[in-house]
Design a protein around this nucleic acid. Structure first.
Length: 492
RNA sequence: CGGGGUGUAGCGUAGCCCGGUAUCGCGCCACGUUUGGGACGUGGAGGCCGUCAGUUCGAAUCUGGCCACCCCGACCA
């Protein structure tokens, strides 16, 4: 069969790639490093967007849209931010093509059409947004500004992987402006909680919430909060970040407001984002050697109904019951597909929807019609049972909740299994090589030590967990005193 | 960008060493029989062999450049 997947044991990376392509989520495009997100994959993204957008609005945010292009002079205003992103920027230098005089069938860049100032294709939008905010903010009465945008950004990555790292990706970026430091920090933390809530309760992926070390901090931020997820192979994946930007952008773009007692103050900022990378996290958290496994809350199709019949009359009879069940489920807000195509046989459909990760499959045959039953199969456990049609809507509703919970619990158990506390550098290296996963270890807090450990082991500090236990210890690398353990892992 | 690998029909491949216009399976189209875990039969369509150049009477095959993808590094959400 051409649709057979590479197994995880055989080649984990290939398995991941196979799933993306064979489950019809996305494909490589004609453009280096850029992917085509296909309808089924985009359906997952739409569900993510819908949920996150609602959460953002419930926490007081509004959507807006800013330009794709950022004039170079604006881009370079915040020095650290500019420096951090400079080496992966796409740059627009001309605004016109013309026919090649030597070959009429070809176009060349018109040298006459050089831009006065280069335009940077946004790798992130702080610069253009803070330049805009300058005009929006005069008084404390204009604050806070709580804005989000859904957009695409471009980061010219050396090496790309479908969903996990593409040169162009879709994301949302929230950019807020506040009168006080406390309020901005509280916003930063609030959005981290929103992300954690979404990733754990919708994606069914457990996360560790924490703060990045200085080395791993967003360019231009005073603090970067993050959620770190663990993939099946024990590697970490940064699933979302929320930055406290201090007054860095306000100072770079001269954004001040007048306080109640008529003083000029710089504005405090945050930014936060998650991207289509989350789809990669979803795949690598739950899927198996049979294909994708989707959490019911984000599955484009939650239930598929497959008819089993002989002849047109048989199909008509089965369809009546199938459509009836479909209506009942839809009334409960469940998304249902009734696949009555005659061009594929039932066995083919079973395999296909398994590969695509549809959480629940209902099979109805003429045998069932006689008994008043259907066969229900769940994707997460690959188990089947025959149940009465009576009350099927509630049963499926509960089953979807069960699957959602089961996926989370399985991932949670794996996380715990693959989380180790170590006390020596030897042990640290051994765990990383032999067991993989998250490793908690004492660290002296210096960037130098972090850098050395990274060089020698490829493991980075994923975060300093929030509400971390404070305990005296010694750094596994330098032997210097340490007050807490931090989370290390090899990461995507 | 450095190291390694791969590129032949929609997909997976044989052929390449030893140059003579491409093999097989799946998929696709038509018709018929089928339909409770990826059906079967018969007939059919589809490939300037990644791309550009060179060697040659002749290149999938030999030589070189380029491009894309995969793996390992550096970078990163």
């Amino acid at each position: 069969m051409s649709k057979e997947l590479t197994s995880r044991a055989e080649d984990y990376s290939k398995w991941y790639n196979d799933i993306v392509v064979k489950a019809d989520l996305a494909d490589h495009s004609a453009v280096r490093g850029c992917m085509v997100i296909k309808p089924y994959g985009y359906g997952i993204w739409e569900n993510m967007q819908k949920t996150l957008d609602k959460m953002f609005k419930e926490t007081g945010h509004q959507n807006a849209y800013f330009p794709l292009f950022i004039p170079k002079s604006l881009f370079e205003a915040e020095e650290k931010n500019a420096e951090g992103f400079a080496k992966e920027c796409a740059v627009v230098t001309h605004y016109r093509l013309k026919t090649n005089p030597n070959d009429k069938s070809k176009l060349i860049v018109d040298p006459e059409a050089k831009l006065e100032e280069e335009l940077i294709v946004r790798p992130t939008s702080e610069a253009i947004i803070w330049n805009t905010y300058k005009g929006w903010i005069q008084s404390y009465r204009d604050l806070p500004i709580l804005v989000n945008q859904w957009a695409n950004v471009v980061r010219w990555e050396m090496r790309t992987r479908l969903f996990l790292r593409t040169a162009e990706f879709l994301w949302q970026e929230g950019h807020t402006a506040h009168a006080t430091k406390e309020e901005a920090i509280s916003e930063t933390k609030q959005m981290l909680e929103v992300y954690a809530d979404f990733v754990e309760n919708w994606m069914a992926v457990p996360v560790v919430k924490g703060v990045k070390s200085a080395n791993e901090r967003f360019a231009g931020a005073d603090d970067t909060y993050c959620i770190e997820a663990m993939m099946q192979d024990g590697k970490a994946l940064q699933a979302g970040t929320s930055h406290f930007l201090g007054q860095n952008f306000a100072k770079a773009f001269d954004v001040k407001y007048v306080t109640k007692d008529n003083k000029q103050e710089f504005v405090w900022a945050t930014s936060w984002g998650v991207s289509t990378r989350l789809i990669g996290a979803l795949i690598m958290s739950h899927s198996d050697d049979n294909g994708l496994v989707l959490p019911p809350k984000l599955a484009p199709i939650q239930v598929v109904i497959v008819p089993i019949y002989k002849g047109d009359d048989g199909l008509a009879k089965v369809s009546e019951t199938a459509n009836d069940i479909k209506k009942k489920l839809q009334a409960k807000g469940i998304s249902v597909k009734y696949d009555d195509r005659d061009s594929q046989r039932p066995g083919w459909k079973f395999a296909e929807y398994e590969l695509k990760g549809v959480p629940v499959r209902i099979a109805i045959g003429e045998r069932d019609l006689a008994n008043g039953t259907v066969e229900i199969a769940r994707r997460d456990t690959l188990t089947k049972e025959t149940v009465n049609i009576e009350g099927i809507d509630s049963l499926i509703e509960n089953l979807l909740n069960d699957i959602q919970l089961n996926l989370f619990n399985k991932a949670k158990a794996r996380n715990q299994e693959l989380t180790t506390t170590v006390n020596s550098y030897e042990e640290f290296k051994k765990v990383l090589d032999e067991k993989t996963g998250f490793v908690y270890a004492h660290w002296d807090g210096t960037p130098e030590t972090e850098e050395k450990i990274k060089e020698e082991t490829k493991a980075t500090i994923r975060c300093i967990p929030l509400n971390n236990v404070q305990e005296a210890g010694v750094c596994i690398y330098s032997g210097k005193p340490s007050t807490q353990r931090v989370l290390f892992a090899r990461a995507y």
